[in-house]
Simulated scan of single mutants.
Amino acid sequence: MHSPNLSRYDDSPQNVPYRRVGRSGLQLPVISLGLWQNFGEASPLAAQKDLVLRAFDRGVTHFDLANNYGPPPGSAEKSFGEILRTDLRGYRDELVVSTKAGYNMWPGPYGEGGSRKYLLSSLDQSLNRLGLDYVDIFYSHRFDPETPLEETMGALKTAVDSGRALYAGISSYSASRTLEAFEVARGIGLNLLIHQPSYSLLNRWIEEPDASGMSLTDVCAQEELGVIGFSPLAQGLLTSKYLTGQIPAGSRASADGSFKKEYVSEENVAALRVLNEIASARGQSLAQMAISWSLRDEVVTSVVVGARTTEQLDENLDAARSLTFTPEELKAIDAACVDGGLNLWASRSSDL
């Protein structure tokens, strides 16, 4: 069993600070550990343990999952459940464990979407894999145009009312759909806690108004919803490895996955090089500045990062040491940023 760092909550540059989530009593570390990539059967359990325990030792208490994280789907929850059972046994009440349901998980008409049957069945399966009686946050992972929001929000309310989740959230909903979801939730007595959208220097869709006339950040600020951005490093694009414009062997872009080779475009690489110069002048790596920038506005409670090694994790967590920007830096960053075409979830949720 792991013996955590006794100073993990001290006010120290080594430890990650916290922000309150919207109007709630819950606080999250400004940097959370996501288990979307590098968890499951494709990675040794020992390496997964190293990442989770290193994060916990530095004050990271929030671990973000979904039913389909792996590979294969479900295996990330199983791995994390094993770490909870062994190394983190006795520390459950210090942890915030979140999971989601919405994307395809099993065959047939009840294995994806926003129906009551799918969401609650999936939550029960997630709890079984995790070995938990409840998760802290349960998300609707995507907007489902085929299911009334009354049903999806009602399923989230049942999850909370039954004690299977402490809080409810939504992920990748557009500003318009978030307003609709919030109104439905308020009407049935469900307190939506948090929204999890993709957000990075090269993927700023949450700042742009949609048909509602409001941006997602405006909506979340108005309704006092917390925001937790995922993929602040654009799946690794906002790191030093792509500055040459080449795709390194063993990188995510070299694999056949969610990172498309076309993301390493001339336009994106040109932006990376300018951003890297700004980061260097700040005394940060490009990855660190990208994370810090995503947290510059306190409407964003936290960002979810992944890592392959504890060295990468430490670099990412060190971004929390420098969260402020001068007006000149922000102006230079805005001038360098381009829309990198990185919101691969848009057609399945945020554009609906």
Rank of each mutant, 00 (worst) to 15 (best):
M1Q: 07
P4D: 05
D11L: 13
S12D: 15
V16K: 04
R23L: 02
L26T: 02
L28F: 12
G34W: 09
E41T: 14
A42Y: 10
P44A: 07
P44L: 11
D50S: 13
A55P: 07
R58L: 09
G59S: 05
V60W: 01
A66S: 14
P72Q: 10
G74D: 05
S79K: 05
S79Y: 06
F80L: 00
G81N: 06
R92N: 03
D93Q: 14
G113Y: 03
R116D: 15
S121V: 10
S122Q: 03
D124W: 02
D124Q: 13
S126E: 00
L130P: 09
L132D: 02
Y139F: 15
T147A: 09
T152G: 10
G154K: 02
S162A: 13
G169Y: 01
S171P: 08
Y173A: 09
E180Q: 15
G187I: 00
L192P: 10
L193D: 04
L193R: 04
S198I: 10
W205C: 00
E207W: 06
P209K: 13
P209G: 11
S231G: 06
S231F: 11
S231L: 07
A234V: 03
G245Y: 07
A249V: 12
S251C: 08
S258L: 08
S258G: 01
K260F: 10
V264A: 13
V264R: 09
S265R: 09
N268V: 01
A271Y: 01
R273Y: 00
V274A: 10
S280M: 12
L286F: 12
A287W: 12
A290V: 12
V300Y: 07
T309I: 13
A320F: 07
R321Q: 14
T326D: 06
K331L: 05
I333A: 03
I333N: 00
D334A: 13
G340H: 03
L344M: 04
L344H: 07
A346D: 14
R348G: 14
D351K: 00
L352N: 10
